[in-house]
Design a protein around this nucleic acid. Sequence first.
RNA 1: GCCGAAGUGGCGGAAUGGUAGACGCGCCGGUCUCAAAAACCGGUGGGGGCAACCCCGUGUCGGUUCGAAUCCGACCUUCGGCACCA
Length: 825
Amino acid sequence: MTTAPRPVELRFSPAEIDRKWQERWARDDLYRVADDDARPKWYDLTMYPYPSGDLHIGHWYAMAPSDCHARFRRMQGYNVLHPIGFDAFGLPAENAAISRGIHPYSWTMSNIENMRSQLRSIGAVYDWEREVICCLPEYYHWNQWFFLKFYEQGLAYRAQAPVVWCPSCQTVLANEQVINGACERCGATVTRRDLEQWFLKITDYADELLDFTKLVEWPEKILMMQRNWVGRSEGVEISFDISLNNLEESEIRAFTTRIDTIFGVTFLALAPEHPLVSALTDDAQRDAVGSYVSQARQTSEIERLSGDKEKTGVPLGSYAVNRLNGERIPIFIADYVLPTYGAGAVMGVPAHDERDYAFARKYGLPVRTVIAPIDWDGSEPAEAYLGEGFMTNSGKYEGMTDQEGVEAIAADVEKNGWGRRATSYRLRDWLISRQRYWGTPIPMIYCAGCGVVPVPAPDLPVLLPEDAEFKPTGESPLAENAEFRNVSCPRCAGPAHRETDTMDTFFDSSWYLLRYVSPRYDEGPFDPKRLREWLPVDQYTGGAEHAVLHLLYSRFFIKAMRDIGLVDFDEPFLRLFNQGVILGSDHEKMSKSRGNVVNPDAVVGLMGADAVRCFLMFIGPWDQGGPWSDVGINGVARWLNRVWGLVERDPVALDSAPTDAQAVRATLRILHQTVRKCHHDLDRFKFNTAIAALMELVNHLSKVWAEASIDSTTWRECVEKFLLMLAPIAPHIAEELWERTGHSYSIHQQLFPAWDEELAAEDTITLVVQVNGKVRDRIEVPANIDESTAHELALSSAKVQPYTEGKVVNKAIYVPGRLVNVVLG
RNA sequence: GCCGAAGUGGCGGAAUGGUAGACGCGCCGGUCUCAAAAACCGGUGGGGGCAACCCCGUGUCGGUUCGAAUCCGACCUUCGGCACCA
């Protein structure tokens, strides 16, 4: 157990100062963001929170440093948009309704009310006039409007497909919402269902989503995750001749990235869901195939996709012909073949694919080596060989390297019309239907006569009805609401019914960044003039858990909007920074069961918002996260207390003592070096080292005060510039001290101080003298020392002489401004 | 299994080819106090020495270099992502 923290006794009341300035800033609309401003714009966005009802320390860790960055940009002279809103649709609200009988709307809005005041306690530059809440009709109206636009363009479509089903949430999910075969929200093991659902055609953008050239700065880790998620593979779609079965279809296609191994094909494996399975099944095999197919359908997603699972299958009793060598090969179904990838069929090459090898061994199928490793002795391999080699048993391609073989065979396959070069993706279309209440109604109508009819735009929004039965049944609660469900067809006026599913909430968050520019605009989702002014987002910050969810969807959304002509840029977020995770003081993830959860409201009340802000920024690099420490926060609280004491002193006292010109010079040097360092560090989210530099400056000022070695004018300049640098980090204390030192309101309307390179330059440096790489002396020398003088000083050093005595000096390396390394022979 | 990131004092971390451990926490000593807390001042990687100083030291082993926490190779550990994608 950690020892109980002994709180620092402060010279001031942080709670009073926090309240005083938060009220004043609000009263004066200090952070109101103006459009049509002459200054350059900067859009600094933090991922908007889900209104769970309580702002936890993780929210603070996301919001406080990003606010510091936004404030820094303001002080650099930018017109900064740093808005806030709420991701207000979603399951927790509905679950609260089920378990506690509170309507999702009331639950959500009262949570928002509470979180607003908690968010205000951070002291951020949020312009509350721009707040966006996406469960309100004024917002979700435009979800529906976008949906209709996508539908017009063929980007939204309805299809029967094997989809992922969460039995606990009683709704379908998108592939991105399945983590290791479990629902990302509730952790229940997901299953498959065949349902007719709405999809967005994100796969149309697979290639562009892999093009990161228009992003200015994103973490390599996120790019890697998106690259893996899209999973682009280049290969060949090769057809096998099945005309000997006398069916309507005369061929069957399989996708392969290894067309060079085509002569090693000894069987064909289809997904159990493959449309030709029934037709290709021989009467003798019909029972076995039937039971295998129904078993595969029931097997859970986890088991089906587990790589450790034994490879199983059933022969259909029919055959296909490999056109490259005229060989007849048996056709199987096997559940390791996925219906949704490639052509839903695999050409089985046991010698060169691990899965095919396992399958062939189990069913006694031949294993034929066609890519020979250099040292191959001609024997049958004990495992699949995946490496490079020379083609063998491969007809006219004999002796080529595998790479040459890929090219030659692909060309011949295309020439003969047996297939084509093709690209496959792991990415699937985005399934957006949800069988739940608390989301945006999908604006579609089904008419017996006219079919699927979109709700005409003037009829939008399709309002979410207030009364609904929330108990999940596997069907949307809206389906039971006759008043909502039954409508007349907009086309023929005949009886029709509405789509009762709602949209995935990631639809909402895909474009919320656009709504902030004109949140009350009612002629469209955004005012195009304001959009041109503010978008794209210059800097986005948030957690990395959205790498292949929100961040991928939003990129797709913007590209689709661009192609419809709604926006003229390609990427929503030019720069991305992922903050780390704040851990409990036991270095573990915070959780109620561990009892290590920190309540920010309590700490803020005791220590002040600024101490919490400073601590979160000081604990380490922002992208690394780190452990909370009840003791550690005393360090920054003590520092702020020292700052207060220092700034409150009357500098006139300094003028009664003689001024030391050297000390003044040194003080100004440190001041300007600190300005330069803070500038660079705040620019790159390196808050921890910026604060460390400010601490060093304060330590120095304490020292020169004790010595009374500088004059009051220099002191005042240092304090003023220090407060300006403190302002983005600790906005309340900085404002209070700014006022107390006689400056006019507000410090948050000032520019960040500039530094003077000449004043920041060192007069002298410590020249390190090494002998064979080991430090033997340190000499104070003028900063502008030349190389030969440095050598001379180094070799004549009394501490160096004993090492060089009687030895030959081979050479001496000189690093300007740093060191001399004497290398002995 | 594959891919990626990271391993530095008692702790959070700094230094991305040139003085290892900035800054802070904690701890030790001192000032003040009847005493304590707070505040302020000083010390604080390990080992040796009365001292000046010396040796060792950034997960492990090797390499490149005048010089490596930093670059390269292998391994170990931790964390994150993907995982039958043909």
